[in-house]
């Protein structure tokens, strides 16, 4: 579905990504993990089009989208959520989610301004579809008319997921969907992610620090460290990979040193 081939991205002298290659298989959950600053969000940024990699390719269904503009990628069905919330804070929950339907609607400024015929039909169809597929699904019905700015953090995260879902995406990029959430909220979110995968067969890419959740959900795990891909494979194989253990826990020598120090 989505393939990253030898992607390389650097800012000045710093290599944010170096030879990253993996394939997110259709309908599966691919988790991308790594310590802070490993390049996970940079990887998302080249997939969603904010940065262009200096070398390498990004393929969507075997078409090269490396140089495609960010807003054009939405038409392919690439949706994403952000690590720090990027909701439209001046709008209600409903309007935020409606924006996910932007690419599927056709009305321009003229028909919008008069709100007749096609524009009206389109808007009402969108509303009905959103109510069914997003608001009911994510259990947001009690807050649909609330301004997003007043909602608690966990709900805002869920609204952002809803906005991405309203795009009816083929590929969904989730950047730390449960960061800062308590256990209940995390479990809710994990359930939603699995439901999305099951109901629509969406290909999901997940960046997350909550290892329990990653190991439970992911069909495939890609591990980055200092921009370099150090491992990839099933959750199980990655967990026992010595390079991964080293990246997360340090080498044996440093472990012993810190033990002695304490």
């Amino acid at each position: 579905m989505l393939t990253v081939k030898d992607a390389e991205l650097s800012f000045g002298g710093i290599k944010a990504l170096d030879q990253v290659s993996f394939e997110a298989r259709s309908g599966e959950i691919t988790a991308i993990i790594g310590p802070n600053g490993a390049g996970k969000t940079s990887l998302f940024n080249i997939i969603s089009g904010f940065y262009r990699p200096q070398r390498g390719q990004i393929l969507f269904d075997n078409t090269d989208i490396t140089r495609m503009r960010a807003d054009k990628r939405a038409n392919l069905g690439i949706a994403r959520t952000f690590q720090n919330l990027a909701l439209f804070r001046g709008m209600t929950v409903l309007d935020n989610i409606k924006l996910g339907g932007h690419i599927r609607l056709r009305s321009g400024f003229w028909t919008s301004g008069w709100f007749y015929g096609s524009a009206q039909r389109e808007e009402l169809a969108l509303r009905a579809q959103i109510e069914r597929d997003v608001i009911d699904f994510l259990e947001l019905d009690h807050i649909r008319n609330a301004p997003v700015a007043i909602l608690p953090y966990g709900l805002q995260k869920r609204v952002e997921l809803g906005r991405a879902l309203a795009m009816q995406p083929n590929v969904l990029l989730l950047d730390e969907p449960v960061a800062g959430m308590n256990r209940e909220e995390t479990e809710d979110m994990a359930r939603f992610i699995l439901d999305i995968q099951e109901r629509w067969g969406t290909t999901i890419l997940l960046v997350e620090h909550d290892m329990g959740m990653v190991m439970d959900l992911a069909n495939q795990v890609v591990v980055l460290n200092f921009g370099r891909q150090i491992a990839s494979g099933s959750a199980d194989s990655v967990q026992h990979n010595p390079a991964v253990i080293e990246a997360y826990l340090g080498t044996k020598a440093t472990q012993e040193a810190s033990l002695q120090a304490s």
């Binding site: 969603s48 089009g49 503009r69 038409n75 909701l87 439209f88 001046g90 996910g100 932007h102 795009m167």
Partner: peptide, 16 residues
């Protein structure tokens, strides 16, 4: 309005 509130997020929604 989306452009006003969060321009990069609007771009992800497919707004040029």
């Amino acid at each position: 309005i989306a452009i006003r509130d969060k321009d990069y997020s609007a771009e992800i929604m497919g707004i040029s």
